[in-house]
Each structure stands twice: as structure tokens, then as C-alpha cells.
Design a protein around this nucleic acid. Structure first.
Lengths: 210, 210
DNA sequence: TAGATTGTTAATCGATTAACAATC
DNA sequence: TAGATTGTTAATCGATTAACAATC
């Protein structure tokens, strides 16, 4: 007998989760005590059966017929599921324009991310801070990563340097890499990566235009 | 009789295209005259049949057995397919940290994007430039969009303002929106949107950690 | 020739959607 | 009750992968 939630949440469901989360926050702020799959589906342009299935995967309490789900409850369930309720520390390498923007972005902590420090090869940046996050020499990376037991590394260097930075991160013990460099990075098994090629993702949008 | 390429490229293929493009550029720079599906697949961690199918969809010349595809040729085909060879103009609203970073990013033109101007409500920014891109009052948006026939709008304002900005963009004639605000935006039919919720996409990475 | 590659057809897998019974 | 909602089971759809024939 097994009353647990489905053990595997489909990847497709997972990718919609942050969208639901964002939408629910808005509904919550509007003061909506309950939300229904049908209204969510309509607002987000999704199929309502799909929404119901997705929600069933994370909600700890079933929806009530004719009423829907309690907004607050659902939001909390989703928050826990997405790991937004526990802070995970990260480091960032490459304190250029994008790097600094990320260091200064205050919203990450709402999504469970806390960038503890930035690293750069540019000496003139060492000792400076952005958004309260200090910039150090890359030589200091290992010490910081190990002392904080950091598992996430963010790469915001130019493309050609991405592989070297990734290798250095892995050598320090980083287990997940968020890569903003427009370059492919090879990693050993056990290290996960999320590539965030902005220009590329834009292409998909532009294609839809024609 | 119809010798044309398959009329529809699956969405899944489309989303892998920029990854191939990026990888091929690297191989090209290394001086690789030919590339094979098998090596691409291995490097990128994909199935080689999948790669072959994907490439078949865009390549104008078939691959040669035992040799593969001519790197340069394939890169050019992909460039044309992804629209990286034709500049599309865009405007940006919200010249804060992220907005300025995007304005200053020189790489977009390699991906067919040219941001012509930024807009902000902050008077102190009017007349200033970032990366050579001027910042104007939002009141000027319509004039700029119409005179340049701009079709793409980039939203880099705080979440709560996203909907208003999107509405204004649509009113000016914008047909595609690249939304960096962590907020859901409702749009009329015919206007496409790509949501770029960075914090959210991060969540998926963090989840893979456990 | 043998082997590495291509492209295609068929089988499998997973995700979406349609149909329906249950609930309040 | 009628209608709006839920959750589930079955059908459909699309994408991936396996098997194979063709080429150089």
C-alpha cells in the first residue's frame, strides 16, 4: 500500500511550476482566497486538465469541488516543492555587466538563492562590493566554496573562458552550474548544468514573429 | 511532387537549434572542416539519431556518409534558419540594472537583434545613453516604434509594472515581447511572448541538485 | 572489404487532451 | 436540483529511440 504522492513529477510539469507560482503570488496579492484549475488554465492559456494534474502532483491537500484550491496553501506547497523556502548559497564568476546585475538583484532570495561572493580576474575589482556581495580574486574561490559548502556556481564570463571557469568550479566541489556564457561546457557526471543563452532564447521568439 | 524541406520543424528541435549553433561556432573556430552527427551527439549528450533528424530539417545539403556535414555550410544554414542573418529592431522598457546590461551587451547583433532605444519613467535617465542606446521618456515610445517599425519589445521593469508596459507596447504595434519581469502578462491574440524568469529557471537547476 | 557515417521506417515512450464519474 | 468543480481512466498526439538499409 502506498499513499505517497507520485514519486516522479514529469519534467514538463516541473517547467510549468514556476509559472504557476508566479501567477499564484499575483492572485494572492489580489486577495483571492481560492483559485480553480479552470481559471488558472484560462489565464495562462493552458488546458485545465493539465493544470489539475500538475497541481495534484504538488498540492498536499486535494482541491475542493466547486471551490478549487486554497491559494495560500497551494502557494506554500509549491514554494516548498520548488525549494524556494530553503536558502542555497552560490558563487558567481565574472563581475562584468551581467554578473553585477545578478549580484545586485535582491529578488533571488525569494527563490531560495543567496549569492555569497563574486570572483573576477580584474584586480581593480578585488575588494569592491556589488549589492553587498564582495568580489575576490579567483584564487580565493576554493576557500570560499569549501568554507561555505557552496554547491551552485554562476558563470557570467565571456564565452571562451566558460570552460576554464567551469573546470575550476568543479575542482572546488561545485555540483550545479548556471551558465550565462554563450558557450558549450563539458562537465563530469554528477555535475548538473543549466544553460541560459539569452540571445539564443530570443531567437525562438523572433521566429514566432513570421 | 514536393521536394521542399519538412514544412514544420518540431518545437523540440527548434529549442535545440541554438545549442547546435553555439557548438558549431566553437568547432568552426577550432578549424574543424567537417562535423558528424555522432560527434555532435556525444559532445552535447544527445542521441545521434535525434541530431541527424534535427540537422536534416535545416541543412540545405545532405550530409555525406563517412564524412558528415561541412561545418561552414551547416553554420550558415542554421544562421539563416534562426534568423541571425537579418537584424530585427527592438526597444527596451526599464533601464535599471538588467535593462542597462542588455542595452550594453554587444553580442545581440550576432543573433539578429538590434535594440534601438530604451525607455524609462525616471527623468534623470532621459537623454543618457548606455552602450550607445539612448534612453527616452515612455511618452516617446510610440513615435520610435512607429518610425522604425519595431516589432520586438523587451520588458525589464519590476514585476508589478509589467502588464502596463506590455499594454503600452501592444498599443504601439509591438508584436513580440521578451519579458524579464517575474510576472504573468496577458496579451491579445497575435502578440507572442517569451517569459524569461531567471529566478524561476534557476529553481529547476537547484531541484536537480538533490 | 570493413567500418563509419548517412537517412528512413517502425517501435517505444511520455505528455497532452478528451471523456467521464464523483462531489458539493 | 443543476452546475461548477474535482480527479481518473482511456485515447490521442508528438517526440525519442531502436532497427535497418544505403553510401562512400
Amino acid at each position: 500500500m502506498n499513499d505517497e504522492k507520485p514519486l516522479v513529477i514529469p519534467k514538463s510539469t516541473l517547467s510549468r511550476m514556476p509559472i504557476y507560482y508566479c501567477y499564484l503570488q499575483e492572485r494572492m496579492q489580489e486577495g483571492a482566497e481560492y483559485v480553480s484549475s479552470s481559471t488558472i488554465a484560462e489565464s495562462l492559456g493552458l488546458n485545465s486538465v493539465q493544470v489539475r494534474k500538475d497541481l495534484a502532483g504538488v498540492s498536499t491537500t486535494p482541491g475542493r469541488s466547486k471551490v478549487g484550491f486554497k491559494t495560500k496553501q497551494l502557494l506554500d506547497d509549491m514554494k516548498r516543492f520548488l525549494g524556494y523556502d530553503t536558502l542555497e548559497e552560490a558563487i558567481l564568476v565574472g563581475a562584468g555587466g551581467l554578473g553585477r546585475t545578478l549580484l545586485q538583484y535582491p529578488g533571488f532570495k525569494n527563490y531560495g538563492l543567496d549569492i555569497v561572493a563574486g570572483f573576477d580576474t580584474d584586480e581593480s575589482l578585488w575588494g569592491r562590493s556589488f549589492g553587498g556581495k564582495p568580489i575576490y580574486s579567483i584564487a580565493k574561490m576554493e576557500t570560499v566554496v569549501k568554507s561555505h559548502e557552496v554547491r551552485i556556481g554562476i558563470i557570467t564570463v565571456p564565452g571562451p573562458q566558460a570552460q576554464r571557469v567551469a573546470d575550476a568550479m568543479v575542482a572546488c566541489g561545485i555540483k550545479a552550474i548556471w551558465n550565462f556564457a554563450p558557450a558549450h561546457v563539458d562537465l563530469p557526471r554528477g555535475v548538473v548544468i543549466k544553460n541560459e543563452n539569452l540571445a539564443a532564447s530570443l531567437a525562438v521568439l523572433a521566429l514566432k514573429l513570421d
